[in-house]
């Protein structure tokens, strides 16, 4: 009886969660083809392909912006992972003065509101000549995504430790080779999670890109947000669907890569003792 009640509760929870994801997604898709949908009707009154044709007319510009967004976010994601690995290793495996301060700095972007951060960094970047440039946008995105990457990789590094690297060193491996041959394969699933997380953080940045990019650096969100604000629902829904699609695709690719890696023996944090 208790088990039956438990399974009903689980089924209801699953249904609610699924509905919470599917209902907005279906509404989004419906709105792409909807010309008029007024209250209190449950279904749209007039359908049209106007928004699709409008977007298709700007296909070249849209693809260019999409590619530049993907490029910026990929660079940010890869840099986040590389810096994340180095920072996590420095904090966990090495002893140096001011270690706690470095650790505190890694979580600082979580505490400072994005708008405050954007205002401050814009002034700094203007002085440095990085404003309105793609390099400035990448650095600003990197600062936002690094805490996620560092925290994720720190957990993995703490679990893997330096035991296997020590063994590799006494067997004749250089420090880099010891890391590359032993810790890196084990950390790969965590690194891939950090990469996908950083990618999403960068891909979703609007305010920061607008402030630092100054309109010169156009990303997908810069193109999408004005439509969301202006109430042009059809166009906004197409952009949102594309945004969702790219995000899901990136997650899919990284999940697939992580899965493949696990299948080949990577990501096992604990040796058989």
């Amino acid at each position: 009886m208790k088990n039956k009640r438990k399974s009903i509760f689980i089924s209801i929870t699953q249904f609610v969660l699924l509905a919470a994801i599917l209902v907005p997604a279906v509404t989004l898709l419906l709105w792409i083809f909807t010309e008029r949908w007024t209250w209190p009707d449950l279904a749209p009154q007039v359908f049209s392909k106007r928004a699709i044709f409008e977007i298709a007319g700007r296909k070249k510009e849209l693809l260019q912006i999409l590619w530049s967004s993907i490029l910026i976010s990929t660079v940010v994601a890869v840099l986040s992972a590389v810096i994340g690995i180095m920072t996590a290793r420095a904090i966990l495996l090495y002893r140096f003065p001011g270690k706690q301060v470095v650790y505190f700095f890694t979580i600082l972007p979580f505490m400072v509101p994005a708008t405050v951060f954007a205002m401050g960094i814009q002034i700094t970047f203007i002085k440095m000549g990085l404003n309105n440039r793609i390099t400035g946008v990448i650095i600003a995105h990197l600062i936002c995504s690094l805490p996620y990457a560092i925290r994720l990789i720190m957990d993995g590094t703490a679990a893997v430790g330096s035991r296997l690297e020590e063994q590799a060193r006494v067997l004749g491996a250089s420090p880099f080779k010891a890391f590359y041959k032993t810790s890196l394969p084990m950390l790969m699933p965590v690194i891939l999670s950090a990469v996908s997380m950083s990618y999403i953080v960068s891909f979703s940045q609007y305010f920061l890109t607008l402030m630092i990019g100054g309109g010169n650096v156009k990303t997908f969100t810069i193109l999408m947000v004005p439509y969301l604000q202006s109430g042009n629902r059809n166009i906004a829904c197409i952009y949102s669907t594309l945004f969702l699609g790219v995000t899901l695709l990136v997650f899919g690719v990284f999940e697939w890569a992580a899965g493949r890696f696990m299948k080949h023996g990577g990501g096992e944090f604990y040796t058989s003792e």
């Binding site: 296997l164 590799a168 006494v170 041959k181 023996g265």
Partner: peptide
């Protein structure tokens, strides 16, 4: 002198075999 150039080997108390490698890869590692 770094560990890899000292020619010293430790058998650690906790077996430090590489879990992501096969038996052959573990033995052939050096």
């Amino acid at each position: 002198i770094p560990p890899e150039k000292r020619g010293t080997v430790i058998v650690f108390q906790d077996l430090r075999l590489f879990p992501h490698m096969t038996v052959e890869q573990n033995i052939a590692f050096p």
